[in-house]
Simulated scan of single mutants.
Amino acid sequence: MRKFGRLIGKLLTWFFAVTFFWVLLFRFINPPITYLMIQRGFERKVDGKEWKIEKSWLDMDELSSNLKKAAIAGEDVNFLKHWGFDFKAMETAFEKNQKGKKVRGGSTISQQTAKNVFLWPGRSYIRKAFEAYFTILIELLWGKERILEVYLNVIEMGDGIYGAEAASQRYFGKSAQSMSKSQAALLVAVLPNPLRWNPTRPTRFIYYKQGLILRNMRRLGELPF
């Protein structure tokens, strides 16, 4: 039992050391690819389509302030206040789901970034535990500005389209550097299901969400970055 205990201790030490270094590395180096990008690429091949990963990185100071505001207003309005987890939003989402209203699980931008960069898609308790762990790490080692920068550059925004720059070029024919308030809100409105919804063909529901995001953007005021 003592040998087993020492083995577990060594494994945990290596796990914490490797993951700490991994997260710290991506504080300074942009993640080149994610598990989801690879998975979607293979899914396209299975469907008889060509391999497709459209992405183009923009640094934080190059991204439109409208887009930064829209992302926070639409995905995580308390992003600047919490430490990775918005427990009130999670509780609200749980209560609505219990009543039969299918809503998102209240994941913050930090949680979504941790999942996108370091983990695989899924809903198991094990993956959720890893998500929580990596969320804490990026909050400690990256800070809000880097988290939002990475989020806006790796998130899935369409079929084979990842990050705001590739999405803006594809949907609006312009760089994410000059995205208007209306375009930014429309792009964020489709994020819950970018494979189903398209900002160039918005439904009445997407227009409704766009309006909510624009109102939240006005309430946010100026961002610190």
Results as ranks from 00 to 15, higher is better:
I155H: 03
L25V: 14
K69H: 08
Y35W: 13
L80G: 10
R2G: 04
T200V: 14
Y162L: 00
Y125S: 05
S168L: 04
N30V: 10
G48L: 06
A132H: 03
F16D: 04
K128Y: 09
V188C: 03
Q39A: 14
I72P: 06
L186K: 04
F26D: 05
G5N: 09
V150G: 07
A73D: 09
S64G: 07
D59H: 13
T113L: 00
N198Q: 04
M217I: 08
E91W: 12
K99A: 14
D159G: 02
R204L: 14
I155E: 11
F225W: 12
L187P: 01
I38Y: 12
E131A: 01
E54G: 10
F118K: 00
T34L: 02
F42Y: 13
S124N: 10
A93F: 02
G173R: 00
L140V: 14
R215S: 15
G163E: 05
E91I: 06
G9W: 06
E95K: 10
T113W: 00
G143T: 10
K10E: 13
A17P: 03
I206G: 00
S175D: 12
R218D: 15
Y35S: 11
K209E: 09
E54R: 14
F20T: 15
M60A: 14
R40W: 01
S180D: 08
M37Y: 10
Q112H: 08
I8E: 03
K45L: 15
W14Q: 05
P194L: 00
A189R: 02
S64Y: 09
R146T: 13
D61K: 13
D159P: 03
G173M: 01
N97A: 04
K96G: 06
A164Y: 03
S178M: 11
F20N: 10
F134S: 01
K101W: 12
L223V: 12
I72N: 01
T19D: 13
R196Y: 15
E91G: 06
M217C: 05
I29M: 13
M60T: 11
I206M: 07
I126G: 06
P121V: 09
A185C: 11
G106W: 02
N30H: 11
G158W: 10
F134D: 04
Y125D: 06
A71M: 04
K45S: 08
P202V: 07
